[in-house]
């Protein structure tokens, strides 16, 4: 075994492992399950993905430093499992290239902030599942940044580590994702008659 990593990494006894899981890992299961569900849209797949994530966390626990951000560490494993193991097996269309998606969206009006087009009143009338649908129809990469930032409260630097992308990309992707979500909500609001057609 690599001596250098030996000195840096903490060795956990079985009792310590159990303690880390009980105190630092399991309390995040609710967020993990919902993240997994919002990636897979399937309850069984989400369950498998979460279970797989925790098993990997157990195997690689030596690389986790106690007291550091356990939630971000677990989310990173889950995201990687989804991309590497899960997406390959799933029936979803194959992954769209990030750069392609970003340059496509970059070309249009999507960078312009559109908050002023969406009214709070129309959002208030919407049902939860309509707002959820508006999120779910976003491309998975845009959906992910919204989940991480707006629902789970991760900071830009944590998101950069979870997603393996530079902070600048986190910011621009988040900005576009929010605009696209607001656009979806605006369209929803219009079709459902929550706002008067202009």
């Amino acid at each position: 075994m690599n001596q250098m990593s030996e000195t840096k990494r903490k060795r956990y006894s079985e009792a310590e492992k159990t303690k880390v899981f009980d105190i630092e890992f399991y309390p995040h299961i609710d967020s993990m399950y919902n993240f997994a569900y919002r990636l897979t849209f399937d309850e069984d797949d989400a369950k498998d993905l979460v279970q797989d994530t925790y098993l990997k966390a157990f195997r690689f626990i030596e690389s986790f430093q106690k007291g550091t951000n356990a939630k971000a560490w677990l989310f990173r494993i889950l995201k990687n499992s989804f991309i590497n193991d899960f997406r390959k097996k799933s029936k979803e269309p194959s992954k769209v290239d990030y750069q392609e998606v970003e340059s496509y969206y970059n070309s249009g009006d999507v960078d312009k902030t559109i908050t002023t087009d969406l009214r709070v009143d129309s959002l208030k009338d919407m049902m939860g599942d309509e707002v959820t649908n508006a999120l779910n129809t976003l491309d998975v990469d845009f959906r992910t940044v919204i989940i991480l930032c707006d629902l789970e409260g991760f900071k830009y630097d944590e998101m950069a580590r979870i997603l393996d992308i530079p902070i600048g990309t986190v910011r621009s992707r988040l900005h576009r994702a929010r605009n696209l979500l607001r656009e979806n909500l605006r369209v929803y609001a219009k079709t459902m008659g929550y706002v008067k057609k202009s």
């Binding site: 399950y33 309509e130 909500l185």
Partner: peptide, 8 residues
């Protein structure tokens, strides 16, 4: 948005 999106 945060309050409307339901958790499973």
């Amino acid at each position: 948005i945060k309050s409307k999106i339901e958790n499973k």
